[in-house]
Design a protein around this nucleic acid. Structure first.
Length: 566
RNA sequence: GCGCCGGUAGCUCAGCUGGAUAGAGCGUUGGCCUCCGAAGCCAAAGGUCACAGGUUCGAAUCCUGUCCGGCGCACCA
């Protein structure tokens, strides 16, 4: 499709003697107007002419140039309609030539993208809330990789901070009665909830927790540290199971605790830069000069221990030294927006030129119908349960609709998990989501299984064609003339991928796939592929193969499987 | 109180860096499997694009203000 866009842009540029990059070629919302359009308002203004008249004159100038398309004048718009056979041939052949790499590129070569994603907290269950960071991060990573970037995904585990003092204190007090081996996450959650229940009644608990964290941070290798280490191991093992189901991998899994030994140097570096000050006994960086009203960044508390921000600074410094990243993306919820603004503000005060490359890829919060999720109150939906129920539902439907399916377990897993993942990537990142079981477990309409199903049907046709040997004649491209909207969508795929990566917005891909499936299914319902005149069948089979390829690629980028049968 | 984000059909959302008559899904109603997979397709109904100003040839889209909702605001992460 880029081909046609370029043809139009260059022709118009020459005819109007305007630089090509200033010519805007768009696709009309209303397909009946044409495949492409050039609004002439701006061009006419530059020529000091009436837009409609300008368009009409331009059309006559273009007449000889663009032989493969019709040029029509509609008031101030110039509409282009590509000859159907030409549109089909160019689009389909470029996709089938490239195969699964259609839409990929090398434009990111030598550039490195660091992505901080998932980053759950130790000793807490992974909730559907963490799913967003994991799934968005993984998709953003794949998108970049597809465009040739070197990607580096980091799971920055929350294994440090005063909350672990609380947990260690809780384990010491009540740990004997809790089964940490069998269902460790559940047991830890119970401890966590119990701590917060009893904290109010028993002030000594708080002191114990503080003491425990002080000991932890002092580096003493005693009982506190042993307990902490055990909690970490148990949690990581549980997390791994979920990542395996989601098909998510990291290049580095590292707890915040790692930065323990870097903290003094980090603080020193900032002190040496002369931007710190003492305030109410704490060590801070004032940020008023960056943005009026922004709260200061705390590096050290009154008691000398460090904070989240200190550790994130240590981490970002190291990431820069190691990767010299093009961008460092933090896929973290919106509730931490201020934190990242402060982080960037400190980098600004340090006058680090790479500060703009640090980007907070934020996303909206997930709520339950009964209110905000709260680990402390035990009001959470566990990710494992969601996946299990979705897979169970997928299995039920498969048994009902496709009882003969050979690989039931595997496909049910692919479809069920796919539904959950797709559902999370469907909307724009910034939007808050209310978690509704009914919606997550729905497999109809704008869902992952809908896309997978479309893919499976196309695969089915291709399978049958292979068996019967159809399609082995030169195609009659005119036979897919009724699929123009599908062809135009297929042609857009590379731009969609590029835009989604740039904006770190996987929903651009999900929305695109839904549209492509809608158009495909509509076409499919009205046009027969197999058993038609051989050249027609050949062309339609090629189209089916092209769509199937793009769907498979798109699903893959989002982290969904594309089963051939379901 | 201050700051950030959102507000489009009954519900959930698209609407591409401002362009031609604002589109889907769910739900509702009515159709379509002797034909490549009905997890599908077709059709109908459903809109003061929160509200008020402004910029522009042109605003759901940009600016200002108001209202509503979410989130955040120094020793949690």
């Amino acid at each position: 499709m880029q081909y046609f866009l370029d043809r139009i842009r260059i022709a118009v540029a020459e005819a109007t003697r305007t630089p090509p990059d200033q010519i805007r070629v768009e696709q009309p919302r209303d397909a009946s107007k044409g495949d492409f359009a050039v609004p002439c308002f701006v061009l006419a203004k530059a020529a000091n002419a009436n837009p409609a008249q300008f368009a009409a004159e331009l059309a006559t100038k273009l007449a000889g140039d663009l032989i493969e398309m019709e040029v029509a004048v509609a008031g101030p718009f110039l509409n282009f309609r590509v000859e159907r056979g030409e549109l089909a041939k160019r689009t389909i052949e470029s996709i089938l030539d490239a195969g699964l790499s259609f839409g990929s590129s090398e434009e990111g070569r030598t550039k490195r993208i660091v992505i901080d994603m998932s980053s759950p907290n130790i000793a807490k269950p992974m909730s559907v809330g963490h799913l967003r960071s994991t799934v968005i991060g993984a998709a953003v990573k794949r998108l970049h990789k597809f465009l040739g970037f070197e990607t580096f995904g980091i799971n920055h585990i929350g294994d440090w901070g005063s909350q672990f003092g609380k947990l260690v204190a809780a384990v010491r007090r009540w740990g004997g009665g809790v089964d940490l081996e069998n269902d460790p996450i559940k047991a830890l959650l119970d401890l966590y909830v119990r701590y917060h229940e009893e904290e109010g009644k028993d002030p000594s608990l708080d002191e114990e927790a503080r003491a425990a964290f002080r000991e932890l941070e002092s580096g003493v290798d005693g009982e506190v540290r042993a307990i902490w280490r055990r909690l970490t191991e148990l949690s990581l093992a549980e997390f791994e199971k979920i990542y395996a189901r989601l098909g998510v991998e990291f290049d580095l899994v590292r707890g915040e605790a790692y930065y323990e030994t870097h903290l003094d140097a980090t603080v020193q570096r900032i002190v040496d830069a002369g931007i710190t000050e003492e305030s109410q006994g704490a060590l801070i960086v004032d940020l008023e000069s960056i943005k009026k009203g922004m709260p200061p960044c705390l590096l050290r508390k009154t008691d000398g221990t460090t904070l989240y921000a200190t550790r994130d600074l240590a981490a970002v410094f190291e990431r820069w030294e190691l990767h010299h990243f093009e961008r460092c993306l933090y896929v973290v919820g919106m509730d931490q927006r201020l934190h990242f603004q402060q982080l960037k503000a400190v980098l600004k005060r340090l006058e680090l030129f790479w500060e703009p490359r640090v980007v907070h890829v934020d996303f909206g919060m997930l709520r339950l119908p009964e209110g905000k999720m709260s680990t402390r109150k035990g009001r959470v939906v566990f990710l494992d349960d969601v996946l299990d129920r979705a897979v169970q539902e997928a299995r039920r439907i498969i048994v009902e609709k496709n009882p003969g399916l050979a690989d039931l377990d595997r496909v049910a897993e692919q479809v069920g998990v796919g539904a959950v993942v797709f559902n999370d990537l469907k909307r724009e990142r910034v939007k808050d989501i209310e978690f509704v079981w009914e919606e997550v477990l729905s497999f109809e309409g704008e869902t992952g299984p809908y896309v997978q199903y479309t893919h499976a049907r196309l695969s089915s046709i291709l399978r049958k064609a292979k068996e019967s040997g159809e399609g082995a004649v030169p195609p009659d491209w005119g036979a897919v003339g009724d699929a123009a909207s599908v062809l135009l969508s297929l042609g857009r795929f590379p731009q969609v991928v590029r835009s989604a990566a740039e904006h770190a917005e996987p929903s651009e891909v999900t929305q695109y796939l839904l549209g492509l499936c809608r158009e495909t299914n509509s076409w499919y319902a009205s046009t027969r592929v197999l058993g038609e005149a051989p050249p027609a069948t050949a062309a339609r089979l090629a189209l089916v193969a092209a769509i199937q390829t793009v769907l498979a690629t798109g699903l893959g980028l989002l982290g969904l499987a594309a089963p051939a049968e379901m």
